[in-house]
């Protein structure tokens, strides 16, 4: 008989921002809840390697959910007449809604890219509900580097252009197998979804005025950014870190914007020590 992976997927329907949303999530492991947030335009599969790593699952319950419109979470009813645009309020409600629905006791929330942006908000707004946050490729703000109109228009294939835009955010050292697995998330995403996520990222989440309010004694903050990430650059992360007393920030060599999916082996070198630290927190 074939060996089954320990990852288990389930569905649940939650009310988020007044919408009925059927949410897909998957998980593996037991112990401290580690709620993982995928990048813009992708889905929770990005965290599959963490869920298959016994060094992590021995003491963490690793959970990743797909936001509505992403992966196996459907868009809400009536999506066909809407332009999807993610907001800070909806994103926060979705994350805390999942945490509450699964009765997670002070989870660690780890997000990448836009997920790394929102954890900076959560560290302030929900400090006492969370054990810690880990921001991968995270900053309070960053400079845009292209016009998102190109991501969803009838004369350019949406999946192809999304993947080709972000392909250079994967470090050249990352194995081809994982590079193309990472890009598949973008190649196969729904029309306008990546662009709609970038509404949050670019227009509704400039946190430069509030990261200094984060109290890391209540909610510790860890930031990890790949040296090849030119979207959220190492300089963006280090600038953000300067405004958060007590934050721990590290720049990761030979990694890009998708550390957990583009080069899982390399990412372990950086994330395992952070998870060790987090496991020792009270």
């Amino acid at each position: 008989m074939v060996e089954l992976e320990p990852i288990v997927g389930r569905y649940m329907t939650l009310q988020i921002g007044g919408r009925s949303c059927r949410i897909y999530f998957e998980e593996a492991g037991s112990g401290i809840p580690l709620l993982c947030l995928h990048t813009a335009g992708a889905d929770g599969r990005q965290f599959r390697h963490l869920m298959l790593d016994p060094a992590i699952t021995a003491r963490y319950r690793v959970i990743a959910f797909d936001l509505p419109w992403h992966g196996k979470s459907l868009p809400w009813e009536g999506y066909e007449v809407e332009d999807y645009a993610l907001t800070t309020d909806f994103y926060t409600a979705a994350i805390m809604g999942v945490a509450n629905a699964l009765e997670l006791d002070r989870p660690v929330v780890m997000g990448c890219s836009m997920g790394g942006r929102i954890v900076l908000h959560l560290a302030h707004a929900h400090a006492d509900d969370l054990r810690a946050v880990i921001g991968l490729e995270a900053a309070d703000h960053q400079q845009p580097w292209y016009d998102t109109e190109w991501l969803n228009r009838p004369d350019v294939h949406g999946g192809e252009v999304c993947a080709a835009m972000i392909s250079g955010l994967v470090a050249p050292q990352s194995p081809d197998r994982y590079r193309w697995e990472t890009l598949w998330g973008y190649l196969s995403s729904g029309p306008g979804v990546f662009r709609g996520d970038l509404h949050f990222y670019r227009a509704d989440s400039d946190f430069r005025d509030r990261v200094h309010l984060i109290d890391t004694t209540r909610c510790p903050v860890f930031l990890l950014t790949g040296e090849y990430d030119f979207s959220c650059t190492p300089a963006d992360t280090l600038r953000t870190a300067k405004d958060i007393p007590g934050v721990e920030a590290e720049i990761m060599e030979d990694l890009g914007h998708f550390p957990m999916s583009e080069n899982p082996e390399k990412f372990r070198e950086y994330i395992l020590p952070v998870l060790d630290r987090v496991a020792r927190l009270k």
Partner: peptide, 12 residues
């Protein structure tokens, strides 16, 4: 880094 992609070069 910075020389590895067309858009890394246009951004800088």
């Amino acid at each position: 880094p910075g020389f590895h992609d067309l858009f890394a070069m246009t951004k800088s």
